[in-house]
Design a protein around this nucleic acid. Structure first.
Length: 570
DNA sequence: GCCGTTTTCGGCCCGACTGTTTTCAGTCG
């Protein structure tokens, strides 16, 4: 059983216990364990076989037994019993904003409601307002919540949230009452998808900020408006929260609202041990409430004895322990990445010419661009024949004379189902670099798929493996492949694993990148741009690398041109 | 349910906003 499946079971248990009204700490314990398991780098079955389940933080006697039962039998009696008590469909009701476990239980007990459709009907008939603890407004809010949920469906891709967020920051910055303004929340941590956008402002005149915020032209609906917190829904369905604090609290609030929740819980516990108390207004002495710090984030971390922790690292994956010892990795900086290897041109399915790509690269201050068009089996993408590839190389060599930026001639060469490549070595040799990539037959068995990919990586002219798991966020599951073997093969063959920066790919993701590094593999960042507008996605690839604790040396794109050429081995 | 240089029992992050319950519970982040 996969880590994700076991995590899902624990999430389900947490939800059911919560509806049942169990001790909140018990619910939280399951949720935390689920989160741990989800982001575990190792296969949980392997940990189980080594008898080390209880060494996972948050897993104790009881949960270890449940994991064992799941692995051995594929089922869990405890969960089956819970489901008999509480219908599992009720969990879905809690997805509705404004509807939590308590109200869900009342709806079930008093009206027998278990599905969203039944709930919608009951709202229409005005049956909710009769219930204790409910009123007309609650009924209307739930109705609206159902509509909203069906409109927005889940989390946004990072580029959508990024653009929405920074546009609002620019808009609010025009207000003279804004002293400081920053994005916080999961967007500041650059998580792969974003649930809502948090923006933090320091000001002595909060009402002026909030009044301006709700007048932002792209606002569709104001959910709540106060002087400390205001929430709106944008026309694209994105929720944005703006919070305003006083300047002496800005750092503490930024730390607090950046999260992650897990990271902050750890931070607070650490503070408590030092006789301090942290909230969004500052760091205080626990006994006297005396203000110690809070103007900047650096200050907050310093007074509790920690190195400053970059937002992308704040996921409680061990960063706090390292910060205590002053041993945090020096993660790659955004400006360290000097180019982009994965750009499609008009030669295959891109919409920009190589010349435009080179110009855009120079505008962005890059040192190189890599043109990686498709190979012939990808007919839908106008993959290039071997003859065409040779022509393309010629064009690039000629263009190079006009440009300072280095233009690498490359390919994204298909890996055929048997693991052979779409181009002969004769052609691959002429290119400056070559990605190998899976674009077909996604449903092979784990073993076959793993062998297929490794065979391609073993080709001496293949430098990189493009989007290794082939997932598309919200659209296609990752292929079934033994990543540990792939990472090992990457190390042995010197193949760079791509961190594909396209927002619906982000593949490898942060967790995989971290695991790959630990296995000694190196990475390469590519945007998979099909137009020059996409080239700005580069930062999302760097973000994944940073979230994966990668350092400069782990990433091909950060090397000097001469070293890159040497690594590419032509 | 988990965890322990305060503890093997008794804690577990905590504040804002809303709506309804006239003093606070539920939800959210």
């Amino acid at each position: 059983m996969r880590n994700q499946e076991i995590a899902e079971v624990f999430y389900q248990i947490a939800d059911l216990l919560e509806i049942k009204g169990e001790l909140p700490f018990k619910v939280r314990a399951y949720r935390r364990a689920a989160q741990r398991i989800e982001t575990l780098e190792k296969d949980i079955e392997e940990i189980y076989r080594q008898g080390k389940l209880k060494s996972i933080p948050g897993i104790g006697e009881s949960m270890a037994r449940k994991i064992e039962e799941l692995i051995e039998t594929g089922k869990l009696q405890y969960l089956e019993n819970l489901k008999r008590e509480i219908p599992e469909e009720l969990i879905r009701l809690m997805d509705i904003p404004g509807l939590g476990p308590k109200k869900a239980l009342v709806l079930y007990k008093k009206l027998g409601i278990t599905t969203i459709d039944q709930l919608r009907e009951a709202c229409k008939q005005g049956r909710l307002r009769m219930l204790e603890g409910f009123g007309e407004i609650t009924e209307r809010n739930i109705m609206r919540g159902i509509e909203m949920m069906e409109e927005s469906k889940g989390r946004a891709l990072i580029n959508v949230a990024y653009d929405d967020g920074y546009r609002i920051v620019e808009y609010l910055r025009q207000n003279k009452d804004v002293l400081k303004i920053e994005i916080a929340g999961s967007l500041r941590r650059m998580k792969e998808t974003i649930g809502d956008i948090d923006i933090l402002v320091s000001s002595l005149n909060p009402d002026s900020i909030m009044d301006m915020f709700v007048k932002y032209p792209y606002v569709k609906e104001v959910l709540v408006k106060g002087s400390k917190k205001t929430s709106v829904i944008l026309k694209d369905g994105m929720q944005v929260d703006v919070r305003v604090v006083r300047p002496e609290s800005f750092g503490a609030a930024l730390q607090y609202f950046t999260g992650s929740k897990d990271h902050n819980i750890q931070i607070r516990n650490l503070a408590i041990k030092k006789g301090l108390k942290i909230n969004e207004y500052g760091v205080f002495k626990k006994d006297t409430d005396e203000y110690i710090a809070g103007r900047t984030e650096e200050e907050v971390y310093r007074v509790i004895g920690l190195q400053y922790i970059e937002p992308e690292l704040r996921e409680n994956r061990g960063e706090i322990e390292l910060a205590q010892q002053g041993k945090l990795p020096k993660i790659v900086k955004y400006e360290d990445v000097k180019g982009d290897f994965h750009i499609h041109s008009t030669w295959s399915d891109g919409t920009s010419s190589i010349e435009d790509i080179a110009r855009k690269g120079e505008e962005m201050g890059l040192k190189f661009v890599g043109i990686a068009d498709h190979s012939p089996s990808l007919k839908v993408a106008h993959g290039l024949s071997e003859e065409k590839v040779m022509e393309k190389i010629k064009e690039i060599r000629k263009l190079q004379e006009k440009f300072e930026i280095r233009i690498f001639a490359g390919t994204e060469c298909d890996i055929k189902p048997d693991g052979t490549l779409d181009y002969s070595n004769k052609v691959l040799k002429e290119l400056d670099f070559a990605y190998a990539a899976i674009h077909s037959k996604f449903k092979m068995s784990r073993k076959e798929m793993t062998e297929r990919i490794i065979k391609a990586m073993e080709n001496e002219y293949i430098n990189m493996l493009a989007h290794p798991t082939v997932r598309l966020i919200g659209k296609r599951d990752p292929i079934d492949v033994d990543l540990e073997k792939i990472f090992e093969a990457a190390r042995e063959t010197g193949t760079f694993l791509e961190i594909n920066a396209f927002p619906d790919r982000l593949d490898l993701n942060d967790v995989h990148a971290k695991a790959a590094k630990e296995m000694g593999a190196k990475m390469v960042i590519g945007t998979d741009s099909h137009a020059i507008d996409h080239m700005r996605f580069l930062k999302f690839g760097v973000a994944m690398a940073r979230r994966g604790w990668l350092e400069k040396e782990d990433i091909l794109n950060t090397y000097d041109l001469s070293k890159i050429e040497k690594m590419l081995g032509r």
